[in-house]
């Protein structure tokens, strides 16, 4: 199987435990089996937030809610501190992490601003100008 050339750019190479034969693309988190295994409890917490009663219980005592779902201390810190990058690094899937962002009234453009370090406004402007490019 041939591999695509991987262009070097960006700073955050995630998923360092790449599977057999897989190469990481810098700045591009790949949500793989290892991430999913690490993030399972946290992702289940995010999934639960679809329900209004769960959102209420979460907001009433976030730390207790995290312990109920069995998050690691690192994951709990990331969730309580809204460290979006850390949530991804600790096994969060962006589609699950987004459930928490929605509770805070945050958009995917806000998260884009965080992940790129550009801030929401500049990120949104870049998208409206046609999106970001490699290189």
């Amino acid at each position: 199987m041939t591999r695509a050339p991987v262009r070097e750019r960006g700073t955050t190479a995630m998923s360092t435990d790449a599977g057999p034969g897989r190469r990481d693309l810098p700045g591009t988190p790949v949500f793989d089996g290892d991430s999913s295994r690490r993030g399972l409890r946290m992702n289940k917490l995010f999934m639960s937030l679809r329900h209004a009663d769960a959102r209420q219980r979460f907001l009433a005592d976030e730390a207790a809610y995290c312990r109920e779902f069995g998050l690691t201390a690192e994951q709990e810190r990331a969730v309580l501190g809204r460290d979006w990058q850390a949530m991804i690094d600790l096994g969060g899937s962006i589609f699950y992490v987004y459930k928490l962002a929605m509770i805070d009234g945050r958009s995917m453009q806000y998260l884009g601003g965080v992940f790129t370090g550009m801030g929401e406004e500049d990120f949104l402007a870049a998208m409206r100008a046609g999106g970001r490019r490699d290189g």
């Binding site: 955050t12 995917m108 992940f115 998208m127 490019r133 490699d134």
Partner: peptide
């Protein structure tokens, strides 16, 4: 084309 997370978020390739 799109990418939601990582430093490369917002990537579009027309």
């Amino acid at each position: 084309s799109h990418q939601l997370a990582g430093a490369r978020a917002g990537f579009i390739n027309p």
